[in-house]
Simulated scan of single mutants.
Amino acid sequence: MLNSNYETGSDLHVATYTAYLHTDKKLYTDAAHKTPAKKTEIEHAFMLGRLIIAAADKTYLPIALAAGGVVVTDGTTATTCTMAADEG
């Protein structure tokens, strides 16, 4: 049997989680690119199938979760978007 990923109470009624891609290929929680997205946040949203990556001119659905980050593609070029390490 496949492993189950359960949503929690904080996920209830959430359609998507949006991370913002900066030109430095890092993911942020805000469009102003002030707060780096944490690894656990990105992994959780990806595993629920609700992660959207917003760039300046495109919006991506991630295609893979790798050790180095989330992989997105525009149909020709794959890009790995990195996230901040979890603290503590």
Score class of each variant (00 low, 15 high):
T80C: 06
T59D: 11
G49P: 07
A55V: 02
F46C: 07
E87P: 03
Y20R: 00
H33Q: 08
L2V: 14
N5H: 03
L61R: 13
K26G: 03
L61S: 14
L2R: 12
H33P: 00
F46S: 07
H33L: 13
D30E: 04
A66V: 07
A84C: 01
A85F: 05
P36D: 10
A31T: 04
I52G: 04
K38Q: 15
A31Q: 09
E87A: 13
K34H: 13
T23D: 15
H22C: 09
T77K: 08
A56L: 08
V72H: 09
T29Q: 03
L2F: 11
T29N: 07
A31E: 07
T73N: 09
E7A: 11
I42D: 03
D86L: 02
A78I: 05
D30C: 06
H44T: 06
L65W: 11
K38M: 15
L61H: 04
A84M: 05
T77Y: 01
T82N: 00
A31N: 03
L48I: 09
K26T: 01
A55R: 08
Y60H: 05
Y60W: 04
T16P: 02
P62A: 02
L61P: 01
K58N: 10
T79E: 01
T18Y: 01
D11F: 06
G88D: 14
A54W: 06
A15G: 09
A15V: 14
K38Y: 05
T35G: 00
H22D: 15
A32W: 08
D11S: 08
D57T: 14
H44P: 02
M47I: 09
A56V: 06
T79C: 04
T59R: 11
V71Y: 13
Y28M: 04
A78M: 11
Y60L: 07
A45Q: 12
S4A: 14
M1D: 10
D57Q: 12
Y20C: 04
T73P: 05
T23N: 15
K39G: 00
H13R: 13
H22R: 14
V70D: 01
L51C: 04
P36R: 14
Y17P: 07
G49Y: 03
A85C: 05
V14I: 15
L48M: 13
V72S: 09
T29Y: 00
K26S: 10
V70C: 06
E43F: 01
A55G: 15
D11C: 06
Y20G: 00
L48S: 09
E41I: 02
N3K: 15
T16S: 12
V72W: 06
D74L: 08
D86K: 05
D11K: 05
K26L: 11
A54I: 03
T77M: 00
R50S: 02
